[in-house]
Structures are given as C-alpha cells and as structure tokens.
Nucleic acid binder design. Sequence first.
DNA 1: AGGCATTAGATTTTT
DNA 2: TCTAATGCCT
Length: 854
Amino acid sequence: MQTEQTLLEQLNDNQRQAVVYCDGPQLVIAGAGSGKTRVLTYKIAYLLVHYDLKPWNILALTFTNKAANEMKGRISGLVGDERGRSLQMGTFHSIFSRILRVEAATLGFSSDFTIYDEADSRSLIKSICKQMGLDDKTYKPSTVHAAISMAKNRLQMPDDYAADGDSLERDRRRNMAETHKIYRAYQSRLRLANAMDFDDLLVYTYLLLNQNEEIRRKYAARFQYVLVDEYQDTNYVQQQILWLLTRDVRRICVVGDDYQSIYAFRGAKIDNILNFQKVYADAQLFKLERNYRSTKLIVAAANSLMKHNERQIPKEVYSENENGEKVKVMETISDKREAAIVCREIKRIRQQEKCRWSDFAILYRTNAQSRLFEEEMRKSEVAMGDKYRVYGGLSFYQRKEIKDVIAYLRLVVNPNDEEAFRRIVNYPARGIGDTTLAKVLDCAQQQETSLWEVISNPVQYQLLVNKGTATKLLNFRALIDGFVAQREESDALTLARDIIEKSGIKADLATDRTAEGDSRRENLDSLISGIADFVQAQREDGQEEHVLLTDYLANVSLMTDQDSDDSSDDKVTLMTIHAAKGLEFGTVFIVGLEENIFPSQMSVGSMRELEEERRLLYVAITRAEKHCYLTWAHTRWRFGKMDGFVNASRFLNDIAPKYLDVQVEGGRGSGGHSSYGETWGGNSHGSYRPWEDDYEINKPYTGSREWGNDYGRRSGRMQNSRPVAGQFMADPKPKITSPRQAEQAVNPFSPSFEKMLRQGGRWTKVEHAVTNGGRTSGSGQRTSAPSGASSGSSYASSGSSGLHPGSVVEHQRFGRGVVVKVEGVGENAKATVDFDATGRKQLLLKFAKLRIVG
DNA sequence: AGGCATTAGATTTTT
DNA sequence: TCTAATGCCT
C-alpha cells in the first residue's frame, strides 16, 4: 500500500502529468519502452487513492488476458489485494462476454451461450456452403469467415452487408458473389445454436447498448472511468462501444502507440488512435517519448526507419541510456549460415557479458523460419541443447483430444451447440455416420431448429431414419441427458471426469499404445488438472457457487495458452515479431530480412500494408535493450526449394546507414567497405525509393530456380518444444519425441554452388566461410560430407534411379507410361511421365513406386 | 469406417 | 519441407 505522494514520486514529469489529469478524455501516446504500463497502473491506483473511486467503477480494457493479469497484479501491489481484485479489468472479449451473459435474454440468447472459436466458425461455414451447394474451393471457409469478420468489425449485419454495394462488388470480383447469403445463414445458425463467435461478443455488446438506452445508462454509470490499453489495436466496433459507454461523462483514457499498430490485418484501425482527438473534441494529448529500454543508437535506428511512414502521429522517441553499439546487419551466404551465426553470437555475447539465455530473442516474420534455428541449436557442436523455447504454433486448446473433450463439456452446458454436437456425435465411434448426420442436419434446417432438438423429438420433426439408427441416436441423447441432469449438482471437475469416463473417451484413448497416444493421455490429464485448479481457485476465492461446468467454460473459451507464462526458465526465446510485442530482451536477432519475407510478399502491393510491415520491424527493433541484429541470407530454402536469388529487405535501406554496422560473411564487410552497397544498396530492385512514386508496384525480381542438387536439407521432425500450459492447466507434458534423423551435410563449396552464385551475378567468388576456432563453423562434417552435386553439371542427372527420358514405366495406379523428363536427385528427384491412361503427371520418385518396364 | 496414398498449399493471428 | 485435407481402397 502506497500513499498518493510516494506513488507520484516514482514517475517522470510526463508520466505524472498523464496520471494526474482526470478531467476529461485523454490520449496518451506511449512510445516503445516509455513506461506505458506504469502510467496505466499508477493512474488506476491514483483514481482509487486520490479520487476514492470504487474499484468496480473502473473499467480497464486490454487485448490479452496476460496483460490484464499482470496489470491487476501490479495494481494490487500498489493499493492492496482487496481493491485490486474488484477492478473491472480484462480483455474486451472477456468483460463483454460477462455483460452479455447477464443480459443475454434481452438479445434472445440464453446465458449459457457457447463461444465459437475460429475453427468452429470455419466448420460452420463449410457446412453452410455444402448445404448451399457452393464449392468450398472457391468459397474457402477461412476467406469467407474473414469477410464476415471484417463486416462485423465495421458493424455490418447481414442485411447491411447485402445492401452494401462495395461489399457485393468486392465479392463478385473475387468470384464469391454468394458471400452475403452465407453470412446470413451463418448468423442464423449461430443463433439457433445459442452461440456467438468472437466478433459477436463485440457486435452484440454494441447492439445491446445501442438499442437499450436503459441498459446503456446502467453500464455507463457503472463504469465511471474507462481506460484502454493498446488503443492502436482497437477496431471500429470497440471504438463505438467505448463511445456508448463514455459519451456522457467522457472520462476515458486511451493509451497506445500508433508506431506499434501491427494488427490491421485483423481489423484494427489505426485511425482510432489517429483521430481520437476528433471524436473526443476536448481530448488532451500526452506524449511519453523517453525510452527507458534501449540504447541511444537502437532508438535512433528505429526512429530513422519510421521516417518513411506517412500516416503517423509525429513523435521523437529518445533515450538517455548510453550510446551503445550500432545495429548490426549480418549478411550470410545461406539461411543455414544465418542460423549458425546467430547461435554463435548468442554464445559469444553470453560468455562475454555473463548474461542469461533468456536475455536473447530470435524474432522472425513467419513461424516456419524457426526450424533452422531449432536445428542449429540442438546440434551437439553448438551445444545449446534445450536452451531455447519456441512460442507459437498449435495451441493446447486446438489439439484434437482437447477439443473433443471440450466439445462434450460444451454440449452438456448448451445442448444446442451445433459444432460441439457434430464433433462428438460419433466420437467415440457409435455408428452414427455422415449419412445420418446429414439427415439430422437437413431436418434441423428445414424446421429451423437445432440438431439436439431434432434428435430429442425425432417423431415430431419427422426424422427419417431406420430403427437401428434411431436407437443409436437415442442412446447418444440419453448419454448427454445424463450429464445435463448433473450439471447443476456436480462441480466442473467431478462432471468432467464422469464425462470422460462414461462417454468412452477414456477407453478409446487407452487403446492407443503409440507414443502419440501417450501424449494424448497426458494432454488430457493436463486438461483435467486445469479444471481441478479452476475449481480450487474459485473455492479459495470464496466463489463456491461458481464451480460448475458452465463457469469453467465461460472462462476457458476465451483463454489461449499465450496467457501462461513460464518465463522463469532460462531459455532463448524464438517467436514471431507479432508475438514479441510488449516484451524486451537484452539482445534481439531479427532474422530473414529479405524481400518477400520481410516485407512479406503479400504486403508489397499496397502502401498501407507496407507501412504496417515497417511498423512491424519497428516493433522488433525496439524490443532490444543493448544489442540488435538484423540478418539476411543470400540463399534460402523455402517450400522445399532453394531460393537462390534473394534480395535484401528494402527496409534495410530505410534505416539511416550511420546507425548500422554491416558485416558480410567472408570478412570483407566490417572494414567499412563491403559488398553491402554493391549487393543491395543502389542497384537492387528491392530498394525502396520513396521519391519514386511507383515504388510499391515495382516489385523486386526474385529469381527462383529449381536445383537438381540435393543439398541435403533432410531434417527429422523436430521435437515439439512449444509451451502449452494455460492458466488453469497443469504442467504441460513434453510431446512426442521422434528420433532425429542424421542430417545430411550441405556443401557450400561444391562447384555447382559457386556456379550458382556466380550466375546470380551477386558474388564474384565465395570466400572462405567465417571460421570458428580453426574449424569451419557450423557443421564439422560439412566440408567432408558427400555432395549431391560433385560433378560440374548441377542437375538433370538421373541419379541412381536409372530413369531416363524414354523409359517405359509402370505405376501401381496409373499403369503404363513413358518418361518425358527427369530432374533432381535423391529426395527431390522428380519425373514427368506420360501415362497411357491418365495423361501427363509429375511424380516425386521418393513417393511414386515406378517399375521400369523398358 | 478407418487407413494410407496423393496432392495442394503455405503471413502475421491479442480474442 | 511440412501439413492438412481429400479420395480411394479394404
């Protein structure tokens, strides 16, 4: 517990001004590392202490549960547990879902409504398309859902959408003219299922407040002060809801940084923060520009990058820390070397500065890029063994075995939940197949009711199935009904255990004797312990009434495993830049700074998206406290092919050179004169020249070329080392470990490799690789390893397969055919064959079992 | 209905 | 290269 005086003493002038101003709407632009969270938490504490506001009168909204929990903890530290706990603090979605459960009846839902996740939404859309006879290749569920989601983000309901010329036109152009009909059907199916998707949580909150003045006034009065974190990431609905809640007394404080707006692709509108002062006319602007995190040079480099963005609130972030070192740019010959060098640097710096593994982060644009770094680190020679942790990937809650159990829980709480029903009606197998399901589905559609209603009253709804099937459906219904009967009596843990037992899930999993089965059972155990933790936590919290399944589900559906945090263990962090927002590390490696990767190929077409990519790099650089590295590689394996003509990212040109220290592998670069300029400085197609108006469309040429050489990228499946625990979950168990196959070495010195580089016109010669203790760094086997391309000709040799153009072959399925072309060697060997029966096909010899006939 | 063979496809993803 | 999804076979 702290007094007002001591609270304010812990802030700098700007921070303090932002904290004490409480007379009206307020916009706080908080640069990276400027103490944004500090201002928010202290402001809330100040409201409680100075204005004596009741904690339940303060609404504080964040984007992640993690941020909310952290902030709650810190406020509790300032003003005591008691008050901290009663704060209305959480994510938009969780706070609003709580309101919606209370007010559900007004909207025509029951308070036990299910929250559909992304997968549920897509699956529902798929089912709708099927029913409407639409091809799901044209109407890809994910694309359709994105369109619907975007519509909801701008508060366009199905009717509005169908009346909106722009939307219809766009859909027509994309050959998806029926999208508005899918949207309509989707929305009604959700309602029939008593379900809302993520977007609905916001949309319905808006509708609730907008259409019921009394309810609006109730909540506006309750939330006397509203604070919003990461305001740059809010979308239109969120902004509108905030307006409804605050337009009367206008006590709202939004905090954010337009420089860090990186979620436009999810509907976030940077305009919300850019225009805040127009919406709230008397809003006061506060800027926190002092960065406490990074060295001067890092901050300067990041600032210089952002000079190239047009849409922004001007600001000058500065640092009073030491100068530090320049941002290092490392140019390597291959993606593999990039990984090796990053690992080498980590080891070197760690030694030198006696810091921890957890002081390092490797940040990349796409998850796929993590693989090489994982591989490199597990190499015995690098000896970083398990000193790293990969974030991202498939979350715990998306694993099949977990989704199955959750589906049972959902169906018991809300039997109308269509997606849950479909998922488990035949799991474990009980002989209710696709045909039966289709009948039930049709029946439900016809009579506009839920699947559950249909199987509960098959006669009334004229469900036409034979007797055996009817019995199976009846049994299923009885099973679920049995659980439903317990739902108010037993706590979540008891009921969940019972369900796993009686549904046959347990028995089903028990039959699987494979390693995968072990992992499934362990995951299931984790889920159960999670439920146990939840029930216990509720009891300790004095919430004895709220230990039921419905309470657990209300919690768990908005939880992701990002929320768990075992940052306590000492490991190097590997994650996407998006995932790194809000974090900081002593040393940051930003890897893969190449055209088509960063900026991503998809974003170079438009100025707005390109600016977002640039902000993404800004976010990445500003994660670093002391050392920041930008790396790129001349050659990279992508999608199983070697990309041989890689251009450096245009963003490297956007950072003022005086803040950069460029190093080119081969040792030519560090002395100030490197191939840097020649390689990508002036001439490269990828350079970004803002003074040329066509720079956005002038995409760099990236040659790609098929390599017959087998450079032996043949890694085994990686051990799954991702985190998994959620908040109410026991320790994650390690997942299946499959033995790593021996890695076949790459030979960067093979004649053909050199030839390739020469042909690329970028390098005149491959110099010696950077050495490390007298040895070629990277892999010791490397230089002596067998090369797939030891001869001068780099490809088109048919290798050992003995196939030649003209060979007559026989395929198990396609029958007899004549080989037209053979390319590649080993793993990549591919043949084009004209089959008598089915025509020309390309076959990967690795897979196709061809018998040579003649 | 389940298992394997084949192919198509492949950003980022707070909730 | 890896994954997910489809389709065909038993």
